[in-house]
Amino acid sequence: MASLRNSLLRPSLVLVTCAALAACGTVDGVSQRIAGAVTPYKVEVVQGNFVSKEQVELLKPGLGRQQVRELLGTPLVSSLFHEDRWDYVFTLRRQGVDEPPRRLTLYFKGDALDRFEGDPMPSEAEFVASIGAKPKEARTPVLEASPEQLQRAAGKPAAPAQPPAAAGAAPAVYPPLEPAGR
């Protein structure tokens, strides 16, 4: 009796294992198709200090640390080991756009700005335009019905139209504001 049970158990165990593996492949294929069709919304993330081209043009050697801070804001990176160096780093992360971070490094001698170097910065107008611009790959959904869709929808009975309310006409009776038991 035990040998009969063992002889039936092994093939059924193999069948269950094969079915489970086949189901995993099917679910994986379906999930990949869904992931390709539906993309989650990703928030645009602005990190760091935005430094515009106009702000960089106002930088001059000899400016004090406080003047630079008022002009550009607090630096993103200031190190105890490099007291005479301030780094401004700016990144804009958006879905469908691969934009590298922009960097600006300022070097001080004592309290005065000695020199600065970094990436070319966009003007304020260019930055604002880039925020409002949609990625090139974004698909705009069609918001109009095709004639075939309109014909299919016309086959359904329409809801009865409500007569338009007269403009300025007040209702004859208002509901009470407080319960009648008071």
Rank of each mutant, 00 (worst) to 15 (best):
E117V: 05
E70A: 14
Q67K: 13
A180F: 10
G64W: 07
S146Y: 01
L4T: 09
A158W: 06
K134D: 03
D98Y: 06
R115Y: 01
P176V: 06
A154K: 12
Q162S: 12
Q55G: 09
V89R: 10
T26A: 12
C24A: 13
D28C: 13
A169W: 07
L9M: 06
L58S: 08
L80Y: 13
A180S: 10
P163E: 11
A2P: 05
F116I: 01
Q95P: 01
D111Y: 05
Q149H: 06
L104M: 00
R65Q: 14
E99F: 01
V173K: 11
L113K: 02
D28R: 15
R94V: 07
G168A: 07
Q55T: 11
E83P: 15
Q47W: 10
D114R: 05
L15D: 05
K136P: 00
Y41T: 13
F116Q: 00
L143C: 10
D98T: 04
S79G: 03
E126V: 02
H82L: 15
R69Y: 15
A165W: 09
K134C: 03
L104I: 02
R33M: 12
S123F: 01
L80W: 13
G110Q: 05
K136N: 05
L150I: 04
L72D: 03
K156C: 09
A161N: 07
V68A: 00
R93D: 07
T105N: 01
K42P: 00
D119S: 03
G64T: 15
V30T: 09
A20M: 10
S3P: 02
R10L: 13
V51M: 12
A166C: 07
A125T: 08
P61W: 06
A23T: 14
A22Q: 08
P163N: 07
G168H: 05
Q162H: 13
V14D: 04
S31E: 14
L13Y: 05
G96P: 02
L21F: 08
P176W: 12
V16K: 10
R65F: 07
P141T: 03
V43S: 08
P100M: 04
V16M: 09
E117H: 05
D87C: 00
R102H: 05
G36P: 02
A133S: 12
